[in-house]
Design a protein around this nucleic acid. Structure first.
Length: 565
RNA sequence: GUGCCAGUAGCUCAGCUGGAUAGAGCAACGGACUUCUAAUCCGUCGGUCGGGGGUUCGAAUCCUCUCUGGCACGCCA
């Protein structure tokens, strides 16, 4: 068993179904097909611990007022061997379940039993999922979009893993094509400028203007001198790209690693061209009638795939487009490597690409729902209440490196995971570094440190450590603050399930803030140290369980859980 | 012009597979440290859920129209 909620849902499900069968047998209710029984937690505590609206859903088929049907059901319920203490009908026809406290005590036992494995589910058993994220152009430093995409993608991967999926994290390296062409031209111009003087060599209008390009040129000259002057421009660019690209990729890898992200696969786009998979994919589409020829180019047929318009696959100069490579890439993921499910994280400015990418999988027998694109909105940085576009130091747009330098990894990961991916994100730099009650990062970390401190003190000053669960009387936990905290901790597996289902890990960030809030309330209302041994031990178990959950969530969002602050 | 996303408290946002009296944090105001960390807690204030219409027992949630903001509509990626 992984979740008390799951257990309770099963109990309620069984109780309702059995009661319904009894009623059908007595003919107090018509024997109809019941809809799925949805069990939820009512907003108001007074409406019980759990409730279901099943008779309202079924009111039409039952041909009876919901309240009346509910009453019949409740009368027929057998509550033996359940947590359910009593059942009431309320409102327009809700059935409210009031539970005894043992479900909460069992929830605590479950946490202690599972420890860091608490919250793990088997939702994704045998499902292999590929999560591809960041995939930044290796032509320069990582920007805010990469930072948000990185935080989201990594967290989604963590959550899916926790939910039992077989997860592969992947970075797609755009190491060929137009961007690289531009990269080469920029490097070449900077190289020549260094050797021949800036005025002697024009810099390409749409080139990469960053300082890093000049640094690459200087570094290359320092190591290899002016030997490229005598090469052909093509050869020169090739050598410069071969020199600078691995450095950039390594920098990206290092930067993301500092950010807490480690990939399983670094996938090179170039290999798809070199080994013929792009050509083969285009040929396959052509052979199966998914293409049209027009204006000297080869187009993906929009009509054939249900798209609004055709898209170029091969330009009239014979060079395949990014789309062609991307189709080959996804075909590689699904068909060649056999992933059941692929998740891509893209900036919202790429939303136009989603429909064609999904549609383009159909020819390969891959249904659109196996490709899931998570679009995330742009990030706006604020300082002193004003929007910040440029780095003070470099005058360029703010890089991930700048951000980590200014606010640190914990704050960055926390704030990028605080809002749902679909909403625009305003990142307040002042708030992220402020050591105050306004900063939610500290709020959560402080709760963890407080717990660790408490546990440490008990051990060091009193020699007290947590006893075996079997020897602890949890029924001594009766105060609202205690029970509310346990209730919150019991929700954790539900949060994992919902985060995995919706691919919205930001709810975990909000959840852990909630856990911290309940802990702080508990802490102010109840003492641990100095209480009589049995109560102290029960509370210590609650506190330690809280520690386990907070640590668990902070690990998922890749934020440090300090033991002291 | 067409499409996608968003519009909820002064601010930043949850809630959106229809459910009971729409939530949280911050800000504002008033309280709580002899006792395990006050980076904390408790309380008060705060809403025509952008607007109109519709669907039904019930709508912030679904449909439709409309207004506002962002983005996309390339032989760029």
């Amino acid at each position: 068993m992984n979740s008390i909620y799951e257990k309770i849902r099963q109990q309620i499900n069984r109780v309702v179904k059995d009661a319904f069968e009894t009623c059908a047998k007595n003919q107090t209710l018509p024997a109809v097909e019941l809809p799925e029984i949805i069990v939820e937690v009512p907003r108001e505590r007074g409406f019980g611990d759990f409730s279901t609206n099943v008779v309202m859903q079924a009111a039409r088929q039952l041909r009876m007022p919901p309240r009346k049907a509910a009453e019949m059901l409740i009368q027929a319920m057998d509550l033996k061997d359940t947590y359910i203490e009593r059942v009431e009908c309320a409102g327009p026809g809700f059935i409210n379940f009031y539970l005894n406290r043992y479900w909460l005590y069992d929830a605590l036992k479950l946490i202690q039993e599972k420890q860091e494995h608490y919250g793990e589910l088997d939702m994704g058993r045998n499902v292999r999922v590929n999560v591809e994220f960041v995939s930044a152009n290796p032509t320069g430093p990582l920007h805010m979009g990469n930072a948000r995409g990185g935080a989201l993608g990594d967290c989604i991967a963590n959550v899916l893993k926790k939910a039992g999926y077989d997860v592969t994290r992947e970075f797609y390296i755009n190491d060929t094509g137009n961007q690289i062409e531009k990269f080469g031209l920029s490097l070449e111009a900077r190289y020549l400028q260094q050797l021949l003087g800036e005025d002697q060599v024009p810099f390409p209008e749409d080139g990469y203007h960053g300082e890093d390009i000049i640094e690459h040129a200087k570094a290359y000259i320092a190591q290899h001198g002016d030997s490229l002057l005598k090469e052909t421009p093509e050869k020169r660019r090739e050598i410069l790209v071969q020199y600078a690209l691995p450095i950039n990729i390594e920098r990206i890898r290092k930067m993301l690693s500092d950010y807490g992200i480690e990939y399983d696969v670094w996938f090179s786009e170039k290999t798809l061209h070199d080994n013929g998979e792009v050509a083969d994919t285009i040929q396959f589409l052509k052979d199966n009638g998914y293409t049209v020829e027009k204006d000297g180019a080869l187009w993906l047929s929009g009509e054939k795939l249900g798209l609004e318009k055709d898209e170029v696959l091969v330009r009239n100069n014979g060079v395949p487009t990014y789309l062609a490579a991307d189709i080959a890439y996804h075909r590689n993921k699904f068909v060649k490597r056999g992933f059941d499910w692929c998740i891509n994280l893209w900036g919202a400015d790429h939303h136009g690409h989603v429909a064609r990418m999904k549609a383009a999988m159909a020819p390969f027998g891959v249904s659109a729902d196996r490709l899931h694109v998570v679009l995330f909105q742009l990030v706006h940085l604020y300082r002193n209440g004003e929007i910040v576009r440029m780095s003070k130091r470099t005058g360029k747009s703010i890089s991930l490196e700048d951000l980590l330098e200014e606010v640190g990894r914990d704050a960055a990961r926390f704030f990028f995971n605080l809002k749902t991916s679909g909403s625009h994100l305003d990142f307040d730099l002042d708030l992220a570094v402020s050591q105050s009650n306004e900063n939610p990062v500290y709020y959560v970390q402080y709760a963890h440190a407080r717990i660790c401190s408490l546990i440490r003190k008990l051990k060091e000053e009193e020699g007290i450590t947590l006893k075996d669960v079997a020897e602890i009387d949890l029924t001594l936990l009766t105060k609202d603050e205690e029970l509310d905290l346990i209730r919150k901790l019991a929700e954790y597996p539900e949060e994992i399930a919902l985060s995995a289902k919706t691919l919205e890990p930001s709810r975990l960030t909000r959840y852990v803030m909630d856990v911290a809030a309940h802990f702080h309330s508990f802490y102010n209302a109840c003492r641990v140290k100095g209480e009589e041994e049995p109560l102290m031990m029960a509370r210590l178990m609650l506190v330690d369980s809280t520690r386990i959950v907070i640590k668990n969530v902070l690990d998922l969002i890749s934020i440090h859980a300090p033991e002291k602050m």
